[in-house]
C-alpha cells in the first residue's frame, strides 16, 4: 500500500523536509525511532530517523540530506506523490526519564532527530540545554523549533557565520566546565561529531548517548548489515539500538563500515545522471 507525501520542502540547501501520511506508524512512533522507506519498485531501502510525528493527523516527518541516488530522487518528489514502502516505527525509543539537566547536541542534519528527543525531555520535566551546529548559517536547521523545546539554546557554525565560531563540542565543554550538573548528553550528527562528543564527555563521567546511522537493509534484525561494536560486543543498530552508550561505541568501525558502498554510490549517481538524463 503506497504512502502519500503530504508536503515536501527544502529547509536549507540540500536538506529537505517530507511529511508522509502513515497513521499506523504515527500512532506508535516515539522519539529516537526510525523508519525505512523505498521509493519505487527498483528502489533501495533506506533508514531515516523520525524527526517528528503527529498522531492526530497520522503523519511522520522525515528530514534528509541529498547524498546519494536515493536521497536525490527523494528530493525531486512532490506532494501527493507516493512512496511505495514506509516501514516503522523501527528501533528502540529513546529512554527518556526525569533526570535533571540534559544536553541535546545536534549536528548538521542530526538536528532533526534530536528535536523530538529534546521535546520529550522538556515535557518530562528535565531542563534541556541544546547545542545545534552546522557548517555555516545557511545550513542551520530548525533553530526555531529547537528554541521552543529548549531552556537554553546554543548555536555553532564551523565558519562563524552564526553563533559560536567553531564546533558543538567547544560549547559542550564550556557547559560541562561550568557549575551545571549535567545528567545526560545526547548527540546525533555526523559520526565524527558523535565521536568527539564522546571524547569530550568521558573525562567528566557524564552519561552520553548517540544514535547510530549504520547501513541497513531490512531494519528488523534479519541481515546484520548494521553491525556495530559496543563495549567490544557486536550489536545490530536496528534492533539493539539505534541509541547506544557513546563511551562504548567503536566509532572507527562505524565510520569504516559507512563507506562500504561509496564506489557503488558514485556509480549509481553517474549512471542515473548520464544514462537516464534525469537529475535523480
Amino acid at each position: 500500500m503506497p504512502f502519500k507525501i503530504l508536503k515536501i520542502n527544502q529547509l536549507v540547501p540540500t536538506i529537505h523536509q517530507m511529511i508522509v501520511s502513515a497513521p499506523k506508524i504515527a500512532n506508535k512512533a516515539q522519539a529516537g525511532q526510525f523508519i525505512i522507506l523505498r521509493i519505487d519498485e527498483t528502489g533501495e531501502r533506506i533508514p531515516l530517523t523520525i524527526a517528528d510525528f503527529d498522531r492526530d493527523r497520522g503523519t511522520i516527518t522525515i528530514i534528509f540530506q541529498e547524498m546519494g541516488k536515493t536521497t536525490r530522487q527523494l528530493a525531486s518528489m512532490t506532494a501527493n506523490e507516493d512512496l511505495l514502502d514506509f516501514v516503522g516505527p523501527l528501533g528502540n525509543p529513546s529512554s527518556i526519564k526525569k533526570v535533571g539537566t540534559v544536553v541535546c547536541v545536534g549536528g548538521g542534519v542530526g538536528v532533526a532527530p534530536i528535536f523530538p528527543i529534546a521535546r520529550e525531555h522538556k515535557e518530562t520535566g528535565n531542563k534541556v540545554i541544546s547545542i545545534i551546529g552546522s557548517r555555516n548559517a545557511d545550513l542551520l536547521l530548525w533553530e526555531d523549533r529547537m528554541q521552543d523545546v529548549s531552556d537554553e539554546l546554543f548555536i555553532t557554525t564551523d565558519d562563524g557565520t552564526k553563533g559560536h565560531h567553531g564546533f558543538v563540542t567547544d560549547v559542550l565543554k564550556q557547559i560541562l566546565d561550568s557549575d551545571e550538573t549535567i545528567s545526560l548528553v545526547i548527540a546525533i550528527g555526523p559520526p565524527i561529531m558523535m565521536k568527539t562528543v564522546a571524547g569530550v564527555t568521558l573525562p567528566y563521567g557524564v552519561k552520553t548517548v548517540v544514535s547510530l546511522n549504520s547501513i541497513m537493509v531490512d531494519g528488523t534484525g534479519m541481515c546484520g548489515a548494521c553491525r556495530v561494536s559496543v563495549g567490544n560486543k557486536t550489536k545490530f543498530a536496528c534492533v539493539d539500538g539505534p541509541e547506544f552508550d557513546a563511551h562504548e561505541v567503536d566509532f572507527s568501525l562505524l565510520m569504516n563500515r559507512l563507506v562500504m558502498y561509496s564506489d557503488e554510490e558514485k556509480e549509481a549517481i553517474e549512471y542515473h545522471t548520464h544514462r537516464k538524463g534525469c537529475n535523480c
Binding site: E44, K69, V217, C223, E264, A268, Y271
Partner: peptide, 17 residues
C-alpha cells in the same frame, strides 16, 4: 537478501548495491 529481494544483481538498474 541484497541479491534476491533487492535484486542487487541488476545494480545499477536496481538501487541496492
Amino acid at each position: 537478501t541484497r541479491v534476491n529481494l533487492m535484486k542487487a544483481y541488476q545494480f545499477p538498474d536496481y538501487d541496492t548495491p
